[in-house]
């Protein structure tokens, strides 16, 4: 390992490319995020904590974290099933199905939000089925969860899919010749190999869900203490010119984002040591 910053290369343009990259990164991402952290440190930890512990804020944070966790949890088996079917089986319409998975990435969140509301409102296609049974989905935390399932499903599928595709079939054959049944092979041989991808997908899905705004606010009904999510609270506080309150909620959410990012990096370096790949 040489002591110099960059390894010598005949290829020109390093300074220009890196200089522009760092400048643009600083202007668009780092300085604005630093402004938030600066504001937060101006407030101080005690003030942030007391703002976050206000009943309405606490309720919103709780709702966001719990529904995001449950949505990511639901998407693990759902995403595994979809990835399995797409990778292992050949059937008519497979490619179309594969393309559909990215729909939540491609569909603008506001569009998804009003569409889900139309479906699950008490007079909607699906909502009326549940309304007949006395169950309300839209304008309750269940609606929030449903919207988060929609937006975060692709994360699990798309992280598991390539790993499953690369999995060596010979280990499964070895497992079968050693007398393991199919279910045992899946549980003891395939799932452990998919674990890093599942964890990464879960973290990505959770991080996305916690910050999600557009697809949730229409179906949530936004009743304070009941179905009001943390990102909406930031918007409400901003509209009330409560910059300190908005900063406090945003700081907590940013801290969660960083924690998720750290977890993903740890999972990936663990997986590289354990399996020799990401």
């Amino acid at each position: 390992m040489s002591a110099r910053f960059v390894q010598p290369s005949v290829i020109p343009g390093f300074r220009l490319a890196l200089g522009f990259t760092v400048f643009y990164l600083a202007v668009i991402v780092l300085i604005p995020l630093a402004a938030l952290i600066w504001r937060a440190s101006d407030l101080g930890l005690p003030a942030i904590t007391s703002l976050a512990l206000e009943p309405r804020t606490l309720a919103a944070l709780q709702l966001s974290f719990v529904t995001s966790f449950l949505a990511a949890l639901f998407n693990v088996p759902f995403g595994l099933l979809v990835a399995w079917v797409l990778v292992r089986y050949r059937f008519p319409g497979r490619r179309l199905l594969d393309a559909t998975i990215d729909l939540p990435f491609a569909l603008p969140t506001a569009v998804a939000g009003i569409a889900l509301t139309a479906l699950y409102a008490p007079n909607g296609w699906i909502g009326q089925l549940f309304a007949a049974a006395g169950i309300k989905i839209a304008f309750t935390p269940v609606g929030v969860w449903l919207a988060l399932v929609f937006v975060s499903l692709p994360f699990i599928v798309r992280t598991v899919q390539p790993v499953l595709d690369d999995l060596d079939r010979e280990v499964e054959e070895a497992s079968a010749t050693l007398g393991a049944g199919r279910l045992r092979t899946v549980a003891k041989v395939i799932l452990p190999a998919l674990l890093p991808a599942i964890l990464t997908g879960f973290a990505l899905a959770f991080a996305r869900s916690v910050g999600e705004y557009g697809s949730v606010i229409f179906i949530a009904g936004n009743i304070p203490y009941v179905s009001e999510i943390a990102p909406l609270l930031i918007v409400i506080k901003l509209e009330e010119y409560d910059y300190a309150g908005a900063t406090a909620v945003a700081t907590i959410m940013l801290a969660v984002s960083f924690a998720m990012l750290l977890m993903i990096n740890l999972v990936q370096s663990w997986s590289r040591r354990r399996f020799g790949r990401v």
Binding site: V6, Q7, I11, L25, P32, L36, V210, I234, S257, L261
Partner: peptide, 27 residues
């Protein structure tokens, strides 16, 4: 090129994906 801090730079480039859009607006 090979240079120091490359992995960190890549993490920073991906950072906006893990920040809530509302927080992005707020900053």
């Amino acid at each position: 090129y090979e240079f120091k801090g490359k992995a960190f730079l890549i993490t920073l480039i991906d950072l906006p994906f893990s920040v809530s859009p509302v927080v992005a607006g707020l900053v």
